[in-house]
Design a protein around this nucleic acid. Structure first.
Lengths: 188, 188
DNA sequence: GACTTGCTGTACCGATCGGTACAATCTCGG
DNA sequence: CCGAGATTGTACCGATCGGTACAGCAAGTC
């Protein structure tokens, strides 16, 4: 059994890894208990809503992390090229260069999609809006900026899927490089 | 209960839809029984290996479909632009313009990934090889062809994920259009 | 040292999991 | 019409599912 948890702040990341690795359906309370070192009593004390609340809270924390480390910098930056580079760096770091899955994407694909549909949509929409805003500042039209930013999100999710499917993280790195080039290309 | 199945040929597609919609872990025998109209007795008569064999056989049939309708045309074509257009058409048709998930990708993301790792890798590798071969015929270097073909697979998978996450299939259509442009662009 | 209060592990709940056993039924050559 | 073999539904298996109940314990407070 893993070391017991000091406080709730350490709890959510461990929960997140279980959901990432096994999906919502596959993340059993036995696995969660083992990964956190907490018995069911403690888990249901922290999350009276059970597994659904655990996943919702994890999603909320992930959302918060992206808000602080990615969305806000994108919105506030006055240098689009630098903002994109920062985003790519943060994304690469967060996803461990392709070794780590995107929990939001994993949930979107599973049967639990409907349960968390609002949070999932909101996450991607805010990311898309923030990135498109940055691209507009670089002189792109609203349409092109939106298209490129959506393409970037597509590339990130696809790169994670393919890197995992092929068990080859270089796919992720290459995709991030290509994506950066595309985001910063001159308007056609 | 759904109409009973006439023969095994009709069985696999229904099975596939269950795995697509619920993932490997989420596809319970109760759901499978309901979707196929077959009791457990019949199911285990057709698939002595149980759920794992059902998924393996479904993957094999999907692999066969792609081999015939996508990989072979890519390898045999002497007109890369036409071959790419054919592939995009087949992909759009197969995935119902983004409404339908990619079972191979879904499995790659789940906890059952390791069980089917070989089939999953083989599927994507053969697709990648066939597409890269076509691109080479259009005059691209091996390196560029490989990079572009991997990028295409990334885009397809990512577009499916994002379209489902945002519940907006236009994301898929746009991504397919962008991908086609990129595949056929002049060498830089 | 009694008492509350907050965590924690654990025994247990009904439901459901994947899988098995088997008897009933169907199919069809003879 | 019959018997062999294929096919079927269903009862049942042990295990595990998510979730609940509760007794035990640690830490203050007085």
């Amino acid at each position: 059994m893993a070391n017991p948890i000091s406080d709730r702040a350490d709890l959510l990341p461990r929960l997140a890894e279980v959901f990432r690795a096994h999906g919502y359906e596959g993340a059993t309370l036995a696995l969660i208990s083992q990964a956190t070192g907490l018995g069911k009593g403690s888990l249901y004390h922290c999350f009276p809503g059970g597994k659904a609340q655990m996943a919702a809270d994890v999603l909320a924390e992930i959302d918060g992390w992206f808000e602080v480390h990615i969305f806000v910098p994108l919105r506030q930056s006055d240098d689009p090229a630098r903002a994109v580079a920062t985003m790519v760096g943060a994304v690469d770091s967060y996803f461990h260069s392709g070794h780590r899955m995107c929990l939001v994407g994993v949930i979107a694909l599973g049967a639990s999609r409907d349960t968390f549909a609002v949070q999932v949509q909101d996450y991607f929409k805010r990311w898309n809006d923030a990135l498109a805003l940055t691209l507009r500042r670089s002189g792109l039209s609203a349409r092109v900026a939106r298209r490129r930013s959506t393409d970037a999100l597509v590339t990130i999710q696809g790169a994670l899927v393919l890197a995992r499917a092929l068990d080859d993280c270089s796919v992720f790195g290459q995709a991030m490089a290509d994506m950066t080039t595309r985001l910063l290309a001159k308007p056609a």
